[in-house]
């Protein structure tokens, strides 16, 4: 465990807690893409299949349970909570995310580390995570001005993967057998997707204005 990875996991945890806070405190999920949350739930379930077979550390197991639990809780909240679900505006959350799931699964069938059930699903979850934010970014683009908590949620989510890239560079330099190409390339793509969002976030933060995304 290196500091980059720990910082990445913590910012990832913060992003999820910010989202839960926003939904719980405001009893509203306006500005949040349910499709992105569903994609993240799929990512965590597909990736953490080894939860009961490979014990790596208490930290690893606890964090996996937290990530799976929170992502399912957010999807449950947005779909079924009697107050919150009424604030979900499905007319703006129109990204056809099932194509993302299909595309990533097909890619995982061809590009993976080993052709086993667990490894193919692991690669699938890595690819899917790289594009899972798209419905949320499209929704932000559509709804123009968004509330701060949503912006912070996306910001922390982007920061987490950026820390992981530093972690992969560090591990590549320090561990002889470390070759995590699938995750590193997908992680770069994922962080690149956030880059333009980060740019506008930084501009709005510098001008102390609300986030204005180009329509």
């Amino acid at each position: 465990m290196n500091i980059f990875r720990f910082a990445g996991d913590m910012t990832h945890l913060i992003s999820i807690l910010v989202l839960l806070l926003k939904i719980y405190a405001t009893k509203s999920c306006s500005g949040i893409s349910l499709k992105t949350q569903e994609l993240y739930a799929i990512v965590f379930v597909a990736r953490y299949l080894d939860l009961f077979t490979d014990f790596i550390s208490v930290y690893n197991t606890v964090m996996k349970l937290v990530f799976i639990g929170c992502s399912l809780a957010i999807v449950w909240c947005m779909r079924l909570h009697r107050v919150v679900r009424r604030t979900y505006n499905k007319d703006v959350d129109t990204f056809r995310h099932y194509f993302l799931v299909l595309g990533c699964f097909l890619l995982a069938l061809f590009v993976h580390e080993k052709f086993t059930f667990q490894e193919v699903l692991w690669a699938f979850s890595i690819y899917l995570e790289a594009v899972a934010i798209l419905p949320q970014l499209v929704l932000l683009q559509r709804s123009g001005n968004v509330d701060n908590l949503t912006v912070q949620y996306v910001f922390f989510l982007g920061a987490y993967r950026a820390f992981y890239i530093l972690n992969w560079i560090y591990r590549y330099l320090t561990e002889p057998h470390f070759g995590r190409w699938i995750a590193s390339v997908a992680g770069l793509v994922q962080t690149a997707l956030y880059a333009d969002f980060f740019y506008y976030y930084f501009i709005s933060w510098k001008n102390n204005a609300k986030l204005q995304l180009p329509a």
Binding site: R5, D9, H12, R47, D50, D54, I56, N60, M63, K64, F67, E113, K114, W122, Y164, N167, H177, G179, R180, A183
Partner: peptide, 10 residues
């Protein structure tokens, strides 16, 4: 050495 095949990252 055979690289340990587990994913130790989240």
């Amino acid at each position: 050495s055979q690289e340990v095949k587990y994913h130790d990252e989240l």
